[in-house]
Design a protein around this nucleic acid. Structure first.
Lengths: 329, 329
DNA sequence: CTTAAATGTGTAAACGGTTACATATTAATT
DNA sequence: AATTAATATGTAACCGTTTACACATTTAAG
């Protein structure tokens, strides 16, 4: 390994001078700067971030904690975070928590032990006080929080829109699939939908589900049609569940969207490739990731923050699992 | 921040002793061990990995470089890597390369600057010599390599199987969608399929595509049916493209699998949730990630390796975009 | 009982950077 | 010409660990 001392020797100056040219810090004569840069090039020197981090007590690393990268909603988030962090020269220490408090704590420890300069967490764990005594900034992603910086989409509004749209398009016996109880965003969606349907005079059922996993999704779908065979509108807790519902409905020979309308949530990339393509409430996942990253670097740089909580808007994506609404009405 | 010195002071011993109890190194009296552990607990001391890494010249970090986490094949890989690494106490420094040599090099630098102890790379870049003068072990994932440790699925065999199965099921005018030229695994699949079809007396076309992106997939699909409207069997370069083909075929009112059979490649999670569900060649992505991680930690630990190249088998997943084969034949 | 080996602990030097401080030279100011 | 400010560079301490080495004490062996 070539160190700053090797560069210093080769260019005939002290390590301090080398450090100064590398960091463009303090005074250094143009001639010596050139000598040093030449030595750097020749030796292919590249500073050891670990040593730098040790002295400075801060690295160029940020921790990113997601529930599960395997859930198709999260890669977009992650990508948004990464692309933005990349710009600021930050790199990502990555972990999946599985919404498991122990794993989460474990990762939080790793992050601090590695001098990360900030953390972005998209977990929905109750164990908030894992974060209480962290000395580094945290921003929560896809999760509302009044006491921490956070960026999230307007889930409640999303739920409302979904309910309004499905009603407007004529569903009369709606089933709301309520997502896992401990996932706040899922509850927000549910509340929004509930609010609208409660105030309407449309029949509806609520069916609880306990996970967002692929493997479970088909089970809920079967259960749904077994329990409520005459439902003509499903508000799914997310696009995965919606996809499973769509799949099962087609298997049962239901005509979509004529007999049954389905609205998902998230707008994961593959939703547009289904047939019929899935109508859904879009969360701007990539932008959310970016936004979170921007917020975090602002906090790291001690910039003034206008808004600790960033709420991003949600939009209805009108595809083919919903009927066309009468536009002249 | 509480350091080893604070613990030493509190427990009335030297830092060397504290270090010894923490690392279970050298001799230390049981009584002092207890004293030290008590101080550790009381102060909630947790060692600074950065300092440790600096002295030892190796961290507990491994670099993971993927083309794009947003491509649904990769989260599974990543998860396999992470789960396995987690077991060994390693954490993941993560990056997306976008198959861009500059980004790739940039990440490789970051990795080494941060003293990672190994790298797993799933890129398909020509710029192999980015890896030449790395002093840390690298294993390539989803990519064949004779001169580096690598784990990959048997793409060529996968291509053969796909071709055989679609022929066996009666397609007579087959289109092979050839994936991007610079993606070796895509070429392997293509070669396998080509091999089988060349030796048969079935008509077939080859159509080249240049990316695996969602946005492009629909374009290829439309182009496919515009160019070869009478094709009755498609061998897609991966499940995304297959999904787009399926979508477009259904849109055109083709009956699947009766008029048109489709076989994908990868078996990404959502393939089973399509309707009709997608027949495909399964790559064991999660296992590949795990295998790569296992191989890397073996190399890190200087264990004897029997096989530098591990090739995982590929299987035909017979779902509903292919016809049922006559079993009594 | 003497000696050697095993056990237990501390001091200080690394690891590879950054920077406070000291010092020297040159340029600007009066 | 004398003084001050700006420029340029080096020395050494520091960041928080680990470990080589030294030394002391206990235990085992002869």
């Amino acid at each position: 390994m070539v160190t700053i001392r090797d560069v210093a020797k080769k260019s005939g100056v002290s390590v301090a001078t080398v450090s100064r040219v590398l960091n463009a810090n303090g005074y250094v004569h143009e001639d010596t700067r050139k000598k040093v840069m030449a030595a750097v090039d020749e030796l292919k020197y590249s500073p050891n971030e670990v040593a730098r981090s040790l002295y400075k007590k801060k690295s160029k690393l940020v921790g990113l904690l997601l529930p599960d990268i395997t859930n198709p909603f999260f890669p977009q988030l992650a990508r948004g975070v990464e692309d933005e962090m990349q710009k600021g020269g930050y790199r990502i220490l990555f972990g999946n928590s599985d919404e498991n408090a122990e794993k989460e704590l474990d990762y939080l420890n790793t992050f601090t032990q590695n001098n990360v300069v900030g953390i972005i967490s998209a977990t929905n764990n109750k164990a908030k006080n894992n974060y209480k005594n962290l000395s580094i900034p945290v921003v929560f992603l896809d999760r509302t929080s009044s006491d921490y910086p956070s960026v999230y989409a307007d889930g409640k509004e999303g739920g409302r829109i979904a309910a309004e749209e499905i009603v407007k398009r004529g569903s009369k016996r709606i089933t709301i699939l309520k997502g896992p109880a401990h996932i706040q965003p899922a509850q927000d969606r549910f509340q929004g939908a509930l609010e609208v349907l409660s105030q309407s005079n449309i029949d509806f059922h609520v069916m609880s589900t306990t996970s967002f996993a692929f493997e479970d999704a088909e089970k809920w779908a079967k259960e749904l049609f077994a329990t409520y065979p005459d439902t003509d509108g499903v508000l799914a807790s997310n696009d995965i569940v919606a996809t499973a519902v769509l799949h099962e409905a087609l298997r049962l020979g239901k005509s979509i969207p004529d007999e049954l309308q389905i609205i998902g949530f998230d707008d994961i990339p593959q939703s547009s490739l289904l047939f019929p393509s899935l109508s859904t409430i879009r969360q701007p996942a990539y932008e959310m990731g970016k936004e979170a990253a921007q917020l975090l670097v602002k906090i790291i740089n001690q910039e003034k923050i206008q808004q600790q909580q960033v709420q991003l808007p949600v939009t209805f994506i009108d595809r083919n699992t919903t009927r066309k609404v009468d536009t002249n009405g």
